[in-house]
């Protein structure tokens, strides 16, 4: 009996392993194709990167002010904004990521609309142009042009901002020695301006609807 069973088991296991290997191979090939040639690759890569994390290879930091604000909501001309242009070493290759924060609001790159930048141009190791790939689809987008010293940001609600940069990399001067610099995460508390002096508080329309606060909420379309 044993002599009869042994060869039969061996022959039945062979095709199963082969099928498994072929299946895994096809899966890898499909994933590679999607990653390289379709927008889904960005999503897959983003998902993988969010787990794997990315090492910052190069970082440019700027501070500027809003020069144009069309449907700017609670953001207005003259408001200060911070921009980080970073080149990260990700699982699926280098990725340029932009982080734009104006006042205490993270506009881009720190929320769900993480900047997955399709196009970017480098010159002498410095990123001089970066453009979000989703700009044609009505999604939030951003474009950074170093030579013009400008950033343009737009979102699907109609918010569109043009921001002038002062062009001076923050790295040239430690942030704590720059009197105009207020990190967006540690924005000046209400009543204190960027230089630390007492100033009249400027109320803003909140993005979060807490009781007692004026906020931006979804339009209440009710037929009466």
């Amino acid at each position: 009996m044993r002599a009869n069973l042994l060869p039969r088991n061996k022959t039945s296991r062979g095709p199963l392993v082969r099928k498994l290997l072929i299946g895994i191979g096809i899966g890898i090939a499909v994933l590679a194709f999607l990653t390289l040639f379709t927008p889904l690759g960005g999503v897959l890569a983003g998902a993988a990167d969010s787990v794997a994390g990315g090492e910052v290879k190069h970082l440019q930091e700027y501070r500027g002010s809003i020069t144009e604000a069309r449907n700017g909501g609670d953001l207005a001309v003259g408001d200060k904004c911070d921009l980080e242009v970073r080149l990260e070493d990700r699982l699926f290759g280098d990725m340029v990521q932009l982080k734009l924060a104006c006042g205490t609001r993270a506009l881009y790159g720190q929320r769900e609309d993480v900047g997955w930048i399709a196009e970017h141009t480098e010159r002498d190791g410095e990123i001089v142009h970066a453009l979000d790939q989703w700009d044609d689809e009505g999604d939030p987008g951003i474009e950074f042009k170093l030579d013009e010293g400008a950033v343009t940001y737009w979102d699907k609600t109609g918010l569109r901002l043009k921001i002038a940069l002062d062009g001076l990399p923050k790295g040239a001067l430690p942030a704590e020695h720059d009197p105009a610099f207020v990190p967006s995460e540690k924005a000046a508390p209400p009543g204190v301006d960027a230089a630390g002096a007492m100033a009249a508080p400027v109320p803003r329309v909140s993005e979060k609807c807490d009781p007692g606060a004026v906020c931006w909420g979804p339009r209440m379309d009710v037929a009466l």
Binding site: T157, G158, A213, C215, G217, P218, R219, M220
Partner: peptide, 18 residues
């Protein structure tokens, strides 16, 4: 929930929860 009249910008409006 009060929607401030004439405050809408596209799909969003200024609102206040009281």
């Amino acid at each position: 929930l009060l929607q401030v009249p004439d405050s809408c910008e596209g799909p969003r409006c200024k609102q206040i929860i009281l």
